[in-house]
Design a protein around this nucleic acid. Structure first.
Lengths: 237, 237
DNA sequence: TGCGACTATATTGTATACGATTTTTTGCAC
DNA sequence: GTGCAAAAAATCGTATACAATATAGTCGCA
């Protein structure tokens, strides 16, 4: 019923809107969990929300489907992706597979100023954790992902960076669906530990910490198959 | 000048054509090097080639651009991607980063019948190497990539599988551009060595061989920056 | 009241239309 | 012939139109 209308990325009077802008706006909304998994994104609604025709709306949704953030079902429309438990497992398996390597490459090129920047991110992240309120929560979610994304950027491989973009965004979806502890960033301190290890050039330890960090995030998920009951079963206690 | 017209994926009278089919057909043409880097893919030509409107042609080209096989330049059109030397390096760096992990996961789940299947692929690949002619060459190129793709499939992670699809396809482009030895599959035997190591459960060795195999492929490339002369300079010896 | 078939509505799939931008061609002066 | 400017053609960007499909609502009947 409520389409993307409740996602308050205002169309902005500075009419200059393209499919890119739409894609980014919707992706941000998904990553920050203003749009929940399963929400229908009708081409009409998206288009009118951004004051463009269905053509551009459709292109943006198509693009998001390539990133795995939106699933389009033939003749039925586009929905915010609803990753299955198996899919969620694969997302984190992919991250465990890839992030140690990225960390290695990043550590080999990192500069003192970049380390400083990372530490700055951590402080910011910590500050957001202590704050309360929706907006702080959303900012925190994004900041938590930014740590991993920044490492990918430092690694200097644009291909891996794009892949990590996708993985982090999809992780956010999985956490939204299956996360248990109210705060996802239970492992905030772990980010700091990783940087510390990098700083003292202990690569093995840094990678080790990274793998465990990802495992911890996944461990906070309840990935049991929920057969969509929603029927009598849900009430016949 | 010559558009996609010389790529002989016949439109096929079985009119059932969708954007998916178009995308796959063009991708195959690129991977098998029937379409060279830089070739212009105009929406009109693609559309009329498959008997669909520009709408679908455009969607297919857009999709290919997300895979990095086609680059679309605003208001100028779509071209078969022409990876820079730096891009090529990143493609192979990504593969070195990712494939050992995939190999590990695959080895953990591989069944005897799958090993048999891989060996079958190798035999086929070897047969194609001895044959001559364009079609054999193309089939060989595809077979060489199929080895890596099959391993990704065995690993059981759909996300990594899709990523490998992209990497292998883009590798083909890089080799087409910068490859030196006539035959890309200089390292055919290396595939066999990797399987052998997997078979005797020597994972460390298998991963080691995989990294070197990828390095060998890259080593056959001449990745020096070629500033597109094409002008007098090209003749003023 | 409950169920099933039929109609109406909404939404997606694809093609076409038109304005904008780029590229090519033409024409003219030098 | 060469070089530049304007016109023509081709191509892309976006909106709209129409057909196909799915969803929701309605009526009739047991």
């Amino acid at each position: 019923m409520n389409s993307a209308a409740n996602a308050h990325e205002a169309p902005d009077v500075s009419s200059e809107i393209g499919t890119q802008k739409i894609r980014d706006a919707i992706r941000d909304a998904i990553v920050e969990r203003r749009l929940s998994p399963g929400t229908k994104l009708s081409e009409n609604d998206v288009g009118s929300l951004f004051n463009v025709s269905r053509t551009l709306a459709r292109a943006a949704l198509q693009a998001l489907s390539y990133e795995g953030l939106v699933s389009v079902e033939k003749n039925r429309g586009a929905f915010v992706a609803y990753p299955s438990p198996e899919e969620a497992r694969q997302i984190f398996a992919a991250r465990r597979l890839v992030e140690p390597g990225i960390l290695r490459d990043a550590a080999a090129r990192i500069t003192p100023s970049q380390i400083q920047h990372l530490k700055q991110l951590l402080i910011e992240e910590g500050r957001l954790m202590s704050e309360r309120g929706q907006t702080a929560r959303r900012a925190e979610i994004k900041a938590s992902g930014d740590f991993h994304l920044t490492l990918a950027a430092i690694s200097g491989n644009a291909i891996m960076q794009r892949f990590m973009d996708e993985l982090v965004a999809r992780s956010s979806l999985a956490i939204a669906l299956y996360g248990q502890s109210t705060v996802s960033s239970c492992g905030h301190s772990e980010h700091g530990d990783i940087i510390a290890a990098v700083e003292r050039n202990d690569l093995e330890q840094a990678c080790h910490l990274m793998v465990h960090h990802i495992a911890h995030i996944e461990a906070d998920l309840d990935l049991r198959e929920r057969k969509s009951v929603g029927l009598k079963e849900a009430f016949e206690l």
